[in-house]
Design a binder for these strands. Structure first.
Lengths: 344, 344
DNA sequence: ATGAAAGCGCTAACAG
DNA sequence: CTGTTAGCGCTTTCAT
């Protein structure tokens, strides 16, 4: 920067002013400086700026599994939203090792970022414990605490609505694919809310909650969904609908159902969550809970940047509206299906 | 850090030594320092370290569209590979605005990263021009220049093999979904190679290359694939196979074909590229060109880190092997199909 | 509107 | 094995 200043016949401070626009610089001076920057192919050193300013212009985005379609959509939306605000995004993945989610918020690296958007699998408490020593954090997903900023859709109500929809289309024995009461089901963030909504929906319709129709899916991917569906089918119980906790899970389930000879939606109705791109392009277009991913990301960034400006703000929660999108996969009534009646 | 040093009764340098492990520190001293760090909840400032060392520990990963399934898979693999090497990943998206790809390599922000993995859409030259003033770059995909490090699969040969496979299964009129000779087809990186392979495969079998069976797909997404397929169908020409340039394109094409009444694979064979997760879970499991995404990412990171260590290395290219995975979508022979004979 | 000086937190070089 | 000194490149006082 000194070189640029010398070449333009000004002081380093003036170059800095030109760069940041923080102070007015007279037109001719500015042009000279810009000229010099170009000639020397100067680019400011962001580490130095970060050191001086205490801000790096980088935010972190941590998600369980980057391969999942919803994560990909979210990453895209966050990168766009960040770009619009002059920020860049550093991505992290928490599912690979159980300790990573915890590490992430505690570890040193944290301090190259100005803030963080975290989609927690289960950990909520240990994040919150350390809150004072951490950069600003926005939680995305349905978290049961009120000490950090968060963006969410009302998953519980959405799941209940999905169950109502399935029942209205003739379903009576609905599989919950993604969480079970027995097991860690209710403890986990998003999973817990969707499971609660499922149970509430059944209760309202005075249908029993059957443990044999609930199954956990450790990995919320297509393969995970297929494996979960297989587990249910191998139990040999009858069911006539599936509420999958994400669209990826739903796609895996539909594949597995078909390979056991199930017809969709004639035998089984399927509903997903998130409305990712391939939901509408599936063999049987998938009914799902849709919401605006970009609006979700924008809200997260607004919360984050406002907190970066003022850490003293009270914790805020912003709800994003959702909508049940009925497609072919829930065109009932379903005849019902079980693993037993099929040859595989 | 000075506070930690004081509390532990040592000099800042010793704290630094404990942190980096760069010099031996006696056990009791180290323990005292670690104790002090814990008590003060000390985390090193990475901007300062970056400023001092000239390295930030961050690498950039730039891809055209983060929503695409292949990008998501690649992001996952790169994050894993980076993590294993003590690096973190900053993601960028180049497709949203045409200028971004160019900006990215020229712009200021570049200088917070130690290196960059770039999946170029078309730009190869302007990257290479500025090579001296840029951080180390590894190109992924099939780029026609030999001045940067790159990782690639032999897309040309893979596309040729796919065409041979389709022909062996009885196809004669194969649609190229993703690139056309007329238009920018051959100029673009990956697209050009796949198109060339397609043409070579046809030529070998002494089949004519029909322009009406080639179509560009600006967005390599499911929706883009569907739109491209619709364009061909609206032309009303007959065809009996589709070579889609990515699996996402293939999924969109299959959806569109079905909605026009086409049966897969009875009427039309379909082959994709990349073997993303949902290829094998599609309604009709998709034949595709498969390769090890993690090996691909590992290779990219090995090239990048070795160049970060020594910028004087000659440019290297590393080829990753691929394999044609024949699934149900190319179970021939196909009867043939055209937009005309269907009611939509 | 521009300049001079100081310092953000860390580590390389050297000395002891 | 540990301490001292200096400076990475930038921006923020405070002067002019």
């Amino acid at each position: 920067m000194r070189d640029v200043a010398e070449r333009a016949g000004v002081s380093p401070k003036t170059v800095s002013n030109v760069l940041t626009g923080s102070a007015q610089v007279r037109e001719p001076t500015r042009l000279r400086v810009e000229q010099a920057m170009r000639e020397l192919d100067f680019v400011p050193n962001l580490s130095a700026r970060g050191l001086r300013n205490g801000r790096s212009g980088v935010i972190g985005l941590a998600q369980p599994d980057l391969r999942a379609a919803f994560s990909a959509s979210m990453t895209h939306a966050v990168v766009e939203a960040a770009h619009a605000r002059g920020l860049v995004v550093q991505v992290e993945e928490t599912a690979a090792e159980p300790a990573r989610e915890h590490d992430l918020v505690t570890r040193a690296r944290t301090h190259l970022i100005d803030g963080m958007i975290l989609n927690p699998v289960r950990l909520q408490d240990s994040v919150v414990e350390h809150l004072d020593h951490l950069p600003p954090i926005v939680l995305i997903g349905e978290v049961e605490q009120h000490r950090t900023d968060r963006v969410f859709i009302n998953s519980r109500s959405a799941a209940r609505e999905a169950v109502q929809h399935l029942i209205a289309r003739g379903a009576r024995r609905i599989v919950a694919l993604g969480g079970a009461e027995h097991g860690a089901g209710l403890d986990k963030a998003t999973q817990g809310q969707r499971l609660r909504g499922y149970l509430a929906g059944l209760a309202e319709a005075q249908l029993p909650a059957r443990p044999e129709l609930q199954v956990e899916v450790p990995e919320w991917t297509i393969a995970g969904g297929a494996a979960g569906m297989r587990e249910v089918l191998e139990r040999g119980v009858e069911f006539d609908a599936v509420l999958a906790f994400t669209d990826s899970i739903a796609l895996g389930a539909m594949h597995e159902l078909r390979s056991w000879g199930g017809r969709l939606p004639e035998d089984v109705l399927v509903c997903g969550f998130d409305d990712v791109e391939h939901a509408s392009f599936a063999g049987t277009p998938l009914t799902t809970i849709a919401f605006d991913h970009q609006a979700y990301a924008n809200a997260a960034l607004d919360l984050l940047t406002s907190r970066m400006r003022d850490r003293g703000l009270p914790p805020r929660a912003q709800e994003i509206p959702y909508e049940l999108l009925a497609r072919a996969s829930t065109q009932g009534p379903p005849a019902g299906f079980s693993g037993k009646n099929s040859p595989i």
